[in-house]
């Protein structure tokens, strides 16, 4: 267990060593929220309170910027180059290493995004707080689970390098699912009912919309329902990662690294 803790710690500290990236993420978060806020101003908010929309967007962008494709690219490159063979002979699980490092990177980023995002939302709303602002701590806790889900998904996408020459396209489509079905820019309640029904069968609205809407529509029923779905989808993603990893082990054992 201590070796995975060491991986976690190394990834965590390495992530903190790049202050430009921390600042850049907050700058991008601010600009993207500002631009989307302009869009909402033009369309007239459509039944949503302006303050709630800004906080909703900031929560979503915090999650969006808390994970990136680094781990997915690393795993993909390791598999395609054969370097994964070096890792497989070492006395630890390559899959667990990747998941641990990915979690370390995520947990290094998220506090800055949470604090910075909160300040940015407060400033953009002119000091306004969302309707159920007491739900923010609970939403942030659920966001940690969402982040683990998305980071594990990145590991799964990277592992698809076993079957595909380039997993970047898959990562981009996954990101678009997050945009569309997760309600990254717009609460999914603005979508037609048929699209909302489809989205409910995917993990994205549970990981994005249901978490972020707690800042303006908080109740414990939503919290427990969201937590249950999130945990279910996160566990499913871990299982999928394990299944693909087993395939990888089989192929490398038979064909070589």
């Amino acid at each position: 267990m201590h070796k995975y803790l060491a991986f976690f710690k190394t990834a965590y500290i390495t992530e903190l060593k790049n202050p430009y990236m921390i600042v850049m993420r907050l700058v991008m978060l601010t600009l993207l929220v500002f631009v989307t806020q302009q869009l909402w101003l033009v369309i007239g908010h459509k039944g949503f309170e302006p303050v709630n929309i800004v906080w909703y967007l900031v929560m979503n962008e915090m999650l969006f910027f808390s994970y990136d494709g680094k781990m997915q690219k690393k795993i993909h490159n390791d598999i395609r180059s054969g370097n994964v063979g070096y890792s497989l002979i070492r006395p630890f699980s390559y899959l667990s290493q990747c998941i641990t490092e990915s979690t370390g990177m995520f947990l290094a980023r998220i506090p800055f995004l949470m604090v910075g995002g909160g300040i940015i939302a407060y400033l953009l709303t002119g000091g306004g707080l969302p309707t159920t602002y007491w739900g923010i701590p609970v939403a942030l806790l659920l966001m940690l689970v969402s982040g683990i889900f998305f980071n594990t998904s990145q590991v799964v996408i990277g592992l698809l390098g076993l079957y595909m020459q380039n997993t970047h396209s898959v990562a981009m489509i996954f990101q678009k699912f997050m945009f569309l079905l997760g309600g990254l820019l717009f609460p999914i309640t603005v979508y037609p009912q048929w699209l909302q029904d489809i989205a409910a069968w995917t993990p994205f609205p549970w990981a994005v919309y249901e978490v972020s809407r707690l800042v303006y529509e908080f109740n414990w029923g939503i919290v427990f329902n969201t937590a249950a779905h999130l945990i279910m989808w996160t566990v499913a993603t871990f299982i999928l990662a394990y299944v693909i990893f087993k395939q990888l082990l089989k192929k490398v054992s038979v064909n070589g690294g």
């Binding site: 020459q165 380039n166 981009m172 489509i173 678009k176």
Partner: peptide
């Protein structure tokens, strides 16, 4: 691989357009 990437990117772009159309 070339054509898979072309098709996947076209699908990726379609999501943007579909979102805005909705």
């Amino acid at each position: 691989n070339f054509w898979i990437e072309v098709i996947f990117m076209a699908i990726n772009n379609s999501f943007w357009v579909v979102t805005w159309l909705i």
